[in-house]
Simulated assay, not measured.
Amino acid sequence: MMVLWEQPVIVGHSISNADGVIQAIDEPVATLLQRHRDQLVGISYISITHPDDLALNLAKVGALKTNGQSTRIRKRYIGGKGDVIKMEVQVSRLAGCDGGLLIGTLSTIDDDQDLDYGPRRLWRRAREFLDIMHARDEILGAELFADHAWTILLLTYVAEAEGRIASTEMVSDHLSLSRATIERWLRVLQSKTLIEPVRAGIDALQLTQTGIDKVERLLDQRLAIPVA
């Protein structure tokens, strides 16, 4: 069962450049963040994001396609008075000069809604699945199991969440499978629009937005997902 959230209340909007440096922000948002607009314009959203939420925040923004689907991020900011402020941001990447713009619609989150159900929880659960699967393979033998597609998705998701780059070589080492076998699985995942096509000469794996959404939907299930 998916976690269901109350409808958030929109506070305002922000515009940042492709690197996340704020170019404009609505006064109500600045007030909620315990700052004036002129204190926010010219700084990166990274500098006011809670450090525990930063890795997944960067991964989701990094996965955005220009003029493509937006992404929803539930996160914490560090207010100007040092308070932790929970918000939801709907972010889109639009075409423009110097790499384009990031457009954010910021909404409040009810304090009764624990942010641990958000990005940090999903990242932690993905790591737990990988740890369980590794222990399972060590104790029972990897030859008994063949959940390679799920493992590839988890490895790529965790790498993106932690600001690392997943690669075919890394996945091959983790699964103790040949590169050719991993590449066959990647083609299958690409056909399902879960993994972006790998660019020639660049060994870097990235989930599509559909891939991120579906992996997070599975990670957010309250019932345990079988790993055997």
Rank of each mutant, 00 (worst) to 15 (best):
V3Y: 06
L4M: 12
E6K: 14
I10L: 15
S16G: 07
D19P: 00
G20V: 05
I22P: 01
D26F: 06
P28A: 08
L32D: 03
Q34L: 07
Q34D: 11
R35P: 00
R35F: 01
H36P: 00
D38P: 01
L40E: 02
I43T: 11
Y45S: 11
P51Y: 00
D52H: 06
D52A: 10
L54V: 09
A55I: 07
L58C: 09
K60Q: 09
K65Y: 05
G68E: 05
S70T: 06
T71A: 12
R74I: 03
R74H: 02
K75L: 01
G80P: 04
K81E: 14
D83E: 15
V84N: 03
V91Q: 08
L94S: 08
G99L: 09
G99Q: 08
G104V: 03
D112P: 00
D114I: 01
L115S: 04
D116M: 11
Y117T: 14
Y117N: 12
Y117P: 00
P119L: 15
R121W: 05
R124N: 13
E128T: 13
L130M: 14
I132P: 00
D137A: 13
I139K: 11
G141V: 04
E143T: 14
F145W: 10
T151Y: 01
L153K: 04
L153R: 06
L154P: 05
A159T: 00
E160R: 08
R164S: 07
R164P: 00
E169S: 04
V171Y: 02
S172V: 06
L175W: 02
S176E: 08
S178H: 10
A180V: 15
A180Q: 14
T181Y: 13
T181D: 08
I182C: 04
E183A: 12
L186P: 07
Q190R: 14
S191W: 04
K192Y: 12
T193F: 10
L194P: 03
P197H: 08
P197M: 03
R199I: 11
A200Q: 13
G201P: 06
G201W: 09
G201D: 03
D203A: 02
A204E: 15
L205C: 05
L205V: 05
Q206K: 09
T208G: 00
T208K: 03
G211K: 00
G211M: 01
I212Q: 05
L219K: 02
D220A: 15
Q221Y: 11
I225R: 12
I225F: 14
I225S: 09
P226R: 09
V227H: 12
V227S: 08
